[in-house]
């Protein structure tokens, strides 16, 4: 990589990954408690915007699903549908014990975690995790995106 007379040399792969990790747009969607902490993480003290994280209201403009809260069996197909509506490339973060394993709500009506329906990239334990934990998840996800190989020639991904 180097800068000479306005010419920027880089691997296309690095450039794409750099672009993707700097503008993760999550879906403004939460089912329960952790959603309040997500709002706190987005609001004045913690300020998600400085990471380029801007909440969007429709899944069609998003590339990140931050799943906050308990997933009930009635909600699961809708989350699956939201995930399918999001364009590729996309990532998912499971926030809180409920989205990881169902937490204390081991009843007839709850799903045992987000990974039953959607592939999850980062798990954040806690009930509810503090906004700082949201940051760590985001930083881990950015590291993961950095290692991504967006261009594959000749074979199926």
């Amino acid at each position: 990589m180097g800068l000479r007379e306005g010419v920027f040399l880089a691997k296309l792969q690095d450039l794409i990954n750099w672009g993707r990790k700097g503008s993760l747009w999550p879906l403004a969607f939460a089912t329960a408690c952790c959603g309040i902490e997500m709002m706190a993480a987005a609001a004045s003290r913690y300020d998600f915007d400085r990471f380029g994280v801007i909440f969007r209201n429709t899944p069609r403009q998003c590339d990140l699903l931050i799943m906050c809260g308990t997933i009930s069996r009635k909600m699961a197909p809708i989350i699956k549908r939201l995930w399918n509506q999001m364009p590729d490339p996309k990532w998912a973060i499971a926030i809180g014990s409920c989205a990881i394993s169902g937490n204390i709500f081991q009843t007839y009506s709850t799903l045992r975690g987000l990974d039953c329906i959607v592939p999850v990239d980062v798990y954040v334990p806690g009930c509810a995790p503090k906004p700082e934990a949201f940051y760590e998840a985001l930083i881990m996800l950015r590291e993961k995106i950095k290692r991504d190989k967006p261009i594959v020639v000749g074979e199926e991904r």
Partner: peptide
């Protein structure tokens, strides 16, 4: 859409153990 069966859950927990469940009802 967020029905978690809290009242049923409470029937299977001791009185002290129910408390954390109700924290999460009205979060």
């Amino acid at each position: 859409y967020v029905h978690r069966g809290v009242e049923k859950l409470a029937e299977h927990r001791k009185y002290m153990q129910i408390l954390p469940v109700f924290d999460r009802v009205d979060y």
